[in-house]
Amino acid sequence: MFAYAIRRLLVAVPTLFVIITLAFFLMRLAPGGPFDSDRVLPPAIEKNIMAHYNLDLPLWQQYLKYLGGLVQGDFGPSFRVRDFSVAELIMSGFPASLQIGGTAILLAVMIGVSLGAFAALRQNSLTDYSVMGVAMVGIAVPNFVMAPLLTLVLGVYLSWLPVAGWGGGAFANKVLPIVALALPQIAYISRLTRGSMVEVLNANFVRTARAKGLREQLVVVRHALKGALLPVVSYLGPATAAVITGSVVIETIFDIPGIGRYFIQGALSRDYTLVMGVMIFYAVLIMVLNLVVDLLYAVLDPKVRYT
């Protein structure tokens, strides 16, 4: 397994290279440039700016320059934000995203798995339907509705929690964003858990275990749940990466200094280097988390072997 992990990490390097190359050229195909705005720049000034950012070079030279910088750990300057480099922006934004996203995903796994298992054990009963129904609210009410609703009720009307802002990372400021971020995840995870749990509960080895007279609790926890978690774990890899790299909607509504906004803002304003930087960061996270998921598979299911 260790060798497998090493091999995967080695494969990651060319994968990353492919991603960078594809993204670099794809992005330049999109219409509009980083300096298009309602103020047209006089030709002389535009020329100065293009030269300043090397945008006047042929594309392949820009690409090589960018790669050269990357090798030295330089993500380049942002095209829009002047006073911070891309690396500084990511480093200052990631802790906030990680705190909010990490907590949300943990919360979602705990609540989601419990709800899902609970519902599965009472399959097709009223309890099952109501638990799943409540969980579905997290999906059926999109977060751009849920988040303003939460702030309106808990922040403006009841004044229990701050409406928005980071507050230097105060706990009160994190509650609502975490809840808003966790709700849909709870829904997804509980549904996945319930689905595969129902399946596993009907599987032969669980039936046998039950027939052998093992205690119900033990059957559920040791055998059923473990098997049922496979699809959940599959889902968690990319979901975790997506959640801890921040959600643009949540960050905008709650004014959280995460990196989720950089991607969309960067893409909209054609801030090529910022988008590339966030994307590379995200790609590395995805690959690491997917590796973790694959290794977890082997732990959860002895039939999955890596050689």
Binding site: V156, G165, I253, D255
Partner: peptide
């Protein structure tokens, strides 16, 4: 930049 959110912050 979210005007709805800013308005709520102002009101609170």
């Amino acid at each position: 930049e979210d005007r709805g959110a800013v308005q709520k912050r102002f009101r609170s």
